Simulated scan of single mutants.
Amino acid sequence: MLGKTANGLFWMYRQLERAENIARLIETGQRIALTRLGSTEEEWKSVLQTSGSLAGYYEHLGDEITRDHAVDWLLRSKDNPGSVMSCIAQARHNARLVRTAITTEVWEATNTAYMTAKDQLARKVADRDLPGVLRMLRQRTGMVRGTTHGTMLRNEIYDFARIGTFLERADNTARIIDVKYYVLLPSVMSVGSSIDNVQWEILLRSVSGRGGFRMAYGAQTDPHDIAQFLILDRRMPRSLAFCIGKIIDNMAYLSADYGGQLPCCVMAEEVQQKYLRLSIDEVFEYGLHEYIQKMLGEMAALGRQIEIDYRFYE
């Protein structure tokens, strides 16, 4: 496979996953703001930080952060390359570049996601319409994933799609955990309080993990159990352990097809061995914020190494 084709597939699926994750973040910001009295500027600032678009917001919209401006920036701004609309548009662009590598069903689902987003986000979304619009956007990106699973051959094309998806998903889960624990709590006195419990509940909802968590751990929202669930539980499809495990699996398939183990494969396995074999108590002893920051750095480095090893730009 040509490197530019692998690049197009990798980034097509990263952008689709990112669009869905940004929609989830907006919903999370809405829910968290409802638990606050008074100004919610800090909550929306934390959401912008999580998405990696705070600097761009300041550059284009100034220092004042409001709910309306933050939502519009994250959802539909053309000046924000990380907005839901921008991500879906870029995913469609990449899908066109690799049109011969994907099935008709995958292309049609991607195009439908784009056309739906373009229609729904043509104008500012009213408050009352926002939950429905976010739900529709998540469903449309989910349809691309579903048609991929249902129609694509399990070959190197599928492998690059999966690696892009799970690298982006792991990055998003890590960012959501970090913002919740490091930014959102008003003070250390809130740990274990009703506010803290509500926010952990919102965190689970933001990764569609509330039902799965209750099945595995019961109704009590203990922070250690939630951290275990989102970081180390291999049954949870958005946990760091699950995502890195899937990346390793698909890299192994590529290695079997092409022969030899590339540096990115070794790097992914080292991340798994060093950081995802720990107990949750060891993670908290390490420092949850410090641990997540380390994981974010490792995943960024892994993404760069994948681009080098598979010659994405040749």
Rank of each mutant, 00 (worst) to 15 (best):
residue 5 T to Y: 12
residue 5 T to Q: 04
residue 19 A to T: 11
residue 26 I to D: 01
residue 34 L to W: 11
residue 40 T to M: 06
residue 43 E to Y: 08
residue 43 E to I: 14
residue 58 Y to I: 06
residue 63 D to F: 09
residue 69 H to R: 15
residue 71 V to E: 12
residue 78 K to H: 14
residue 79 D to A: 13
residue 101 A to G: 06
residue 101 A to V: 01
residue 107 W to C: 07
residue 110 T to L: 04
residue 110 T to N: 00
residue 112 T to W: 08
residue 115 M to K: 08
residue 116 T to G: 00
residue 120 Q to R: 13
residue 124 K to D: 15
residue 127 D to T: 11
residue 132 G to Q: 14
residue 134 L to Y: 08
residue 135 R to V: 11
residue 136 M to S: 13
residue 137 L to K: 08
residue 141 T to K: 04
residue 143 M to F: 11
residue 149 H to Q: 13
residue 152 M to S: 14
residue 152 M to E: 13
residue 154 R to K: 11
residue 161 A to G: 12
residue 164 G to Y: 02
residue 164 G to W: 00
residue 169 R to S: 01
residue 169 R to C: 07
residue 181 Y to E: 12
residue 183 V to R: 15
residue 188 V to C: 05
residue 188 V to N: 01
residue 188 V to D: 04
residue 188 V to R: 04
residue 208 S to N: 08
residue 209 G to P: 00
residue 209 G to C: 03
residue 212 G to K: 10
residue 215 M to V: 12
residue 216 A to G: 04
residue 219 A to R: 13
residue 227 A to W: 02
residue 228 Q to Y: 02
residue 230 L to V: 01
residue 232 L to D: 05
residue 234 R to H: 12
residue 235 R to K: 07
residue 236 M to E: 13
residue 237 P to D: 09
residue 241 A to H: 03
residue 245 G to V: 06
residue 246 K to Q: 14
residue 250 N to H: 15
residue 254 L to Q: 04
residue 256 A to Q: 13
residue 259 G to L: 13
residue 261 Q to E: 15
residue 262 L to S: 03
residue 262 L to C: 02
residue 264 C to S: 15
residue 266 V to W: 06
residue 270 E to F: 05
residue 279 S to Y: 14
residue 282 E to S: 12
residue 285 E to S: 12
residue 285 E to C: 06
residue 291 Y to S: 06
residue 292 I to T: 12
residue 293 Q to W: 09
residue 299 M to R: 05
residue 308 I to K: 15
residue 308 I to A: 14
residue 309 D to N: 09
